[in-house]
Design a protein around this nucleic acid. Structure first.
Length: 432
RNA sequence: CUGACUGUAGCUCAGUUGGUUAGAGCGCCUGACUGUGGCUCAGGAGGUCGCCGGUUCAAAUCCGGUCAGUCAGCCCA
């Protein structure tokens, strides 16, 4: 084997045989997302793929796995006067906050409703549904704390996949409070788990001081009795968070969103406050989360902006496409590749230049057209046109050129007629 | 990083208890008509059997190592 793609980096090629890696399906998923987000009033932001490392450290959180062990770092050249490290973005939210601050978007009409999508990079152990270059569809709302916005964002995310036919998903929601109430809950968790530390795993022993909420989503110790009767975060919410939580549920009910309250989801990113949610599919194996998100009212301040509430989600494009494939919905979700309108088959040295001239005339008229570049026989050109699924084959030989006509074969009907060159565009547009 | 499984043609895979020029299907190219696709038929191109070493008269096959891939732990999208 010669050189291969790096581990966790996928190739996307055109062709249905590539399944969820079919580049045409990716193109359609992106267009679909643009359309749905547009209908909800969201506008596209395009953050760079690289930011200063500092932004992600502050934005994503110093205790997160993403920052502590999964960052693709970029070390500046030795002769670069700016010595700051940069990093490939591991997620989109931090960069979007930076854009919002740096461009003074807060001075535009609020709230700011953003969609974005593209590749993110995490130095992970590769597995089914988990890659080092992963793609996300992302939505953020800055500048509104109304729980109706949390509900809108959740509804939007479900709408995106719902319109593609994906069903049987579980929507888990929870509230993890705010800087006012979370310390009390953290303390309650620490007091609850501390007596059992000797029986818990190494990670849990570290987490109890750094991030006790994540004791709850430890898989190793999930069956430990201390997990079963652990304090529930919802019981510790302050008045403001409690009101927000109840408002969220009321709004979700009003929108007929089918959700489950799961008090164990806490999310792996530090910036969340109040609402957190996760949507999982039963069809994906170990990496079952299709998307997740929540509210992060403190994030904008953390990365250097004025206090601004925010809520959003990141949806895994690979996982959505894989779930569609597992459900047999890939063909149904995305229409078939558009056909070519015409293929020009020429014979001989006289017809060739005439064919090339015609090729560009048809293209200029908006007719998708191709021609043979391998000097093949007429038979082989016909065969090739058939494989390309062209609607028409325009045949040019010496006789046709001499008479200013072309033999036009309708490949579906198998019929052929003689058409004046001056009438070709209209002929194809009429029938096609 | 740990564990399990897997590496043979572009793709999906056969390959017997080690034995001569390593096979099939699909795909690709050419021909069966000196100007007509899909079907059929004939032919062709394409492989240092992941790599290195060992055992043997002989290794795709057995052994060791190594690299790569897949899935799982962990974590998340």
């Amino acid at each position: 084997m010669s050189i291969q793609a790096p581990k966790g980096f996928n190739d996307f090629l055109p062709g249905e045989q590539y399944g969820w890696k079919d580049s045409y399906r990716w193109q359609q998923l992106e267009e679909h997302f643009r359309k749905v987000a547009g209908q909800y009033g969201y506008q596209e932001f395009r953050p760079p793929l690289v930011e200063f490392l500092e932004l992600f450290v502050h934005g994503v959180g110093t205790t997160t796995d993403i920052v502590t062990k999964e960052m693709f770092n970029i070390v500046p050249r030795g002769d670069d006067p700016d010595p700051r490290r940069m990093a490939m973005r591991p997620e989109l939210t931090a960069g979007l906050c930076r854009m919002y601050i740096e461009n003074g978007i807060a001075n535009q009409p609020q709230p700011t409703k953003i969609f974005a999508f593209g590749p993110n990079f995490r130095y992970e152990n590769v597995q089914k549904g988990r890659f080092r270059q992963l793609h996300q569809l992302d939505v953020e709302v800055f500048g509104a704390q109304d729980p109706a916005v949390d509900a809108e964002v959740i509804h939007l995310s479900l709408d995106v996949v719902g319109r593609l036919g994906l069903k049987g998903l579980t929507v888990n929601v929870n509230s993890i409070g705010c800087p006012v109430c979370r310390p009390k809950y953290r303390e309650a968790l620490q007091n609850h788990f501390r007596p059992h530390l000797a029986e818990l795993c190494e990670d849990c022993n570290t987490r109890i001081d750094k991030n006790p909420l994540r004791l709850l989503d430890c898989k190793k110790d999930s069956r430990h009795p201390a997990q079963q009767n652990a304090p529930v975060g919802l019981d510790y919410l302050c008045d403001e968070c409690k009101t927000h939580w109840e408002g969220l549920l009321a709004n979700l009910n009003a929108l007929s969103v089918n959700y489950q309250v799961d008090t164990r989801i806490v999310r792996g990113l530090d910036y969340y406050t109040k609402t957190v949610f996760e949507v999982v599919s039963p069809k994906l194996g170990a990496q079952s989360a299709l998307w997740g998100g929540g509210r992060y009212d403190g994030l904008m301040e953390t990365v250097g902006g004025k206090p601004t509430p925010g809520v959003g989600f990141g949806m895994g494009m690979e996982r959505v496409l894989m779930a569609l494939e597992a459900e047999g919905l890939l063909e149904g979700a995305f229409p078939a590749r558009p056909r070519m309108d015409a293929f020009i088959a020429t014979m001989g040295d006289v017809a060739r230049p005439a064919g090339l001239k015609l090729l560009y005339e048809l293209r200029a008229a908006g007719i998708s057209t191709d021609i043979d570049y391998l000097g093949r026989s007429l038979k082989a050109q016909m065969k090739y046109a058939g494989k390309q699924n062209s609607r028409f084959v325009i045949i040019l030989g010496e006789d046709e050129v001499k008479n200013g006509v072309a033999a036009v074969k309708n490949m579906d009907a198998g019929e052929q007629q003689t058409v004046p060159l001056t009438d070709l565009v209209r002929h194809i547009q009429t029938i096609g």
